[in-house]
Write a protein that binds this DNA or RNA. Structure first.
Lengths: 240, 240
DNA sequence: CAAGCAAGCTTGTATATACAACCATTGACT
DNA sequence: AGTCAATGGTTGTATATACAAGCTTGCTTG
């Protein structure tokens, strides 16, 4: 894989994610202030601020003017982080020839968990989505709604309409490498036991991959069947 | 309503939204560059940039390095803007005594449309959510997935655990003004024919309000029943 | 004419700085 | 002991600046 120069604020974001994931920074723990992070990483305060702000938008941190920045409370926080890591891993493998960027979108309805993989191919200015929603139940009453939104972009279809040489749809239907890519993705997902990552205890086992489709937007969808009768149900929804 | 000093970048955001909503700036239209906006509003480029960037994250604009900023293509874009305006209107009315901030979250599954209203009460540092997802069909095949995410925050429950004098749940169950608030909200929603705003043609009529609940997170949910058999189905999902 | 290079524009990243708004603590005063 | 004001720390907003990276255009050159 070509070594992409990582932005400074990305380094800080990864550092914070690692701290949270490792458990070193627990729930409600105070995160170093903007000034402290800036000094620690030898960057300006605005750069450190951007890292904190983006993680706040993603639901990992909570900021309070005058008080400080704190680690948010998420039962499925580790799942979020692991999914993110898988996305990184798929990128780093470099076996997906025509994919420059790849992220995961995990949604589900009832007993189905749909994992959307957004591919950013060479000739396509696609974009990435990372959203998950978890609804907790207690005595059949919803007690908590958790939401995550890591990144949101859309295919700028003005490109395909006005300027582009190739549309995502043409690309997806004609090129072989992308089908190879999906196989590769499936392999990575299997290795990482993605279904376990998506669930909260009691774990929702993955029974089978039901369906794989892609849209004209360059979105590859994997619908994974899981066992019914789980205490926790993942929110969000997709039908095909 | 107390006059809240509006940040500069917010003014620019509202200006752009107005241009898009009025139809002056059509789909794929080029938006003034950061420098142009900065000069027009007599602000620095970074301030204009922030306005463009946030609108991009919200799905209204698309940015491309080297090319410029463009209006995104959204069939339901006007719906998004109208929902935003309703949220503003509810705030400006000032009849909701204990609600400092209010936004809408529109989700649906099958024939149900659930409208989530997040209240930011005086003693609660709650947060706002604004997300909508639309899946378009053609010959029973999904052809496009649109997503919006205006704002995402979460209740910093470390407040209720460690510092706060009152938890959201206590507040919601004990105080009368909030139930008044929900009535007020319902009235506003009825006036604005919210169900029409949420739909794409053919319109999904609102049959009745099925359910109203709130969670310990300060989220008030209205489940609205609509007629079945619509060509378009709104994505996302919530069960109670 | 065609290829390719250079200039100029756009957005992306980063720094340094300043002040405002908010919060928690400290300490003096009553 | 309790109240109030000052203080320092933190995040929020805003500016000015600089350079990098990507796209478009137009000119030069073969």
């Amino acid at each position: 894989m070509t070594q992409v120069k990582t932005a400074k604020f990305t380094v800080i974001k990864q550092h914070i994610c690692q701290k949270i994931e490792s458990g070193e920074w627990k729930q409600h723990a105070k995160v170093p202030s903007e000034n402290e992070l800036a000094e620690q990483f030898s960057v300006s305060r605005m750069t450190a601020r951007r890292a904190l702000q983006e993680l706040t938008e993603q639901g990992l941190l909570i900021r309070s003017q005058g008080s400080g920045t704190f680690v948010a409370t998420f039962k499925s926080q580790s799942s979020l982080l692991k999914i993110r890591n898988i996305a990184d891993e798929i990128q780093e493998r470099g076996h997906i020839h025509h994919a420059k960027q790849l992220t995961l979108k995990a949604v589900s309805v009832n007993e189905e968990i749909a994992i959307l993989l957004n591919l950013k191919a060479n000739s396509i200015t696609s974009e990435s989505v990372f959203y998950s929603e978890v609804l907790h139940f207690e005595n059949n009453q919803p007690i908590q709604l958790e939401q995550r939104y890591v990144n949101s972009k859309l295919v700028p279809d003005y490109l395909s309409q006005n300027f582009a040489k190739i549309t995502p749809h043409e690309y997806l239907s004609s090129e072989a490498p992308l089908t190879e890519a999906t196989h590769e993705i499936e392999a990575v997902l299997a290795e990482n036991e993605i279904c376990q990552l998506l669930t909260i205890e009691p774990q929702i086992p993955c029974l089978q991959v039901k369906r794989r489709t892609w849209s004209s937007q360059g979105v590859v969808s994997l619908a994974i069947l899981t066992a019914p009768g789980n205490k926790y149900r993942l929110g969000s929804h997709l039908t095909f």
